[in-house]
Design a protein around this nucleic acid. Structure first.
Lengths: 287, 287
DNA sequence: GGCGCGTTTCCATCCAGTGGGAACCCGGCG
DNA sequence: CGCCGGGTTCCCACTGGATGGAAACGCGCC
């Protein structure tokens, strides 16, 4: 925990994908340096991670602090600022998804007392958009804003099962990383599993990402019937080896309710575009 | 809703506070153009709102899309991108606050079936960090990521009551805007109310922001005993005129529990600084 | 006191950002 | 069918903001 500076310098082999030399790209290089594991960074660390020269990092970081995108603690560490959070909360995807499904997620939690996850597909990973749990739930690793592999989680498999062929191919091509002895690493097996998920409308995941954790997941459909998210209940193997089967109906029901709600409430609602053209005066520069 | 283009050009009197002429400031000028009311903007709208020339906006917007900070729909509108949400979710304040308090908020909702709000102070406003509700709750306006005035809400009054004198003065100096007949607009009355809130440890707000809505709020203390957030239960006047008094003990309890949890779990935890110096390799440039 | 590490400031160079303007796209209309 | 107007995209010569090496600074530690 209190290790000295273990900088696994990523600098040497930077540019891996030409970060671009625009200022904006540098700005986001800084911001992207932050992550769940590294929520606070000092100047040197930022330079090490981004590979940018010190003075550049220093200047941009200062600008970002000025703009509220970063916050500088008195101990010199930088963190993501409140404004970033506020801006992020405007992202339509997670926002409406959350707004619509929270009550149902809630009920689901209430009846199961387990972790309930809501996730969407982003790139070739699962992105957790919401998570509800309580003191009665076992704790799991995933966090809101966190990511997991597609082939080794319940939500991931659901999303992958309903994803375009290309993505499925890409995932297979990239190789199915083994996380536990039970991870599905054979392409054929995975494809068959996905097929079954499409047929049954539910995905089960038993210790495929981490030992001791099991989950079931169901798809959530958007207004256009396409799968936009996945809902899952996660538990510990020991506590509920088979009992997860018992929550499947409830899970299904919740997922369907949310889908229906999405279809009705947000077909032409604020989310569906918010009629462009209607512009109200800009919020007087807060702060 | 489907009005033609009502551009209340803010351009003419821009610079009100010199936006700065750095690229980063322009980037955030674009991003800040988005808000709860205007979650989707088209190019022209962006230029109108920011006051920047078209080509500049076009170029920067394209860069931001490239970086995932914005998303461009096929209809030409821009929206906040998933990456922004993801970055925002790293903001320590809302994140740990949420992580710690969700179970309690939950229980509180469960016992009251009312809206439960968690808010922090930002600038001279209340910023809603979390909100839990269900089908049994009445709907209120506030949204996660939304803002409200300090002097006309339960959470606001709690936060203001424990805020530094300067802020209180500033709020008074700025003038107490009247929202309803019951809004406290007299400085003296507000100060007295704040005093009482400090003494009783609870704030009541009866139709001071909008008619028909009442709430009670309690402070949440951080590890250093300073007030870091406020928790509240919100309801409709009609449904629960007096019954809110009944939830006060539960509210108090929840707030205290959260405070205690904050004190213990996060004193030296990841939030408290996440020992800088420990750096793991950068996440291979996703996307 | 002096050393080492990290942060902050400075400033001459220069290239990326700028923005006016033109081309383009498209749906509506006479 | 061709014109029109609003919005978007593209272009490119000019210039001022970004750059980053280097030096100064601050500080904890031996």
């Amino acid at each position: 925990m209190t290790e000295p500076t273990i900088l696994t310098m990523t600098a040497p082999r930077e540019d891996a994908h030409k970060p671009g030399r625009t200022v904006s790209s540098r700005v986001f290089a800084l911001l992207n340096a932050f992550s769940q594991e590294r929520p606070a960074l000092r100047l040197v660390e930022l330079t090490a991670v981004t590979g940018l020269p010190v003075s550049t990092v220093h200047r941009i970081a200062a600008e970002l602090v000025e703009l509220g995108a970063l916050k500088k603690e008195r101990d010199g560490t930088y963190r993501i600022g409140l404004r970033m959070w506020e801006l992020g909360s405007l992202c339509p995807q997670p926002r409406t998804l959350r707004d619509v499904s929270l009550p149902f997620i809630h009920d689901l939690y209430e009846t199961t007392a387990e972790n309930v996850h809501l996730a969407v597909l982003d790139g070739d990973e699962v992105l957790y958009v919401e998570r509800v749990w309580g003191r009665r739930s076992v704790d799991v690793v995933s966090r809101v804003g966190g990511r997991s592999p597609l082939h080794a989680t319940g939500v991931g498999k659901v999303l992958l099962a309903h994803a375009p062929r290309e993505l499925q191919q890409a995932v297979l091509a990239a190789g199915l990383r083994r996380y536990t002895p039970r991870t599905i690493v054979m392409p054929g097996l995975l494809m068959r599993a996905l097929q079954e998920i499409r047929e049954t409308g539910i995905a089960r995941c038993a210790e495929e990402l981490s030992l001791g954790t099991v989950s079931v997941a169901a798809p959530i459909h958007g207004p256009d019937r396409r799968v936009v998210a996945a809902l899952s209940v996660v538990s510990h193997t020991v506590t509920h080896t088979r009992s997860l089967a018992a929550v499947e109906p409830a899970l299904r029901l919740a997922a369907m309710s949310i889908s229906r709600e999405l279809a009705k409430g947000y077909a032409g609602g604020p989310e569906a575009g918010g009629p462009p053209g209607t512009v109200t005066p800009i919020r007087s520069a807060a702060r």
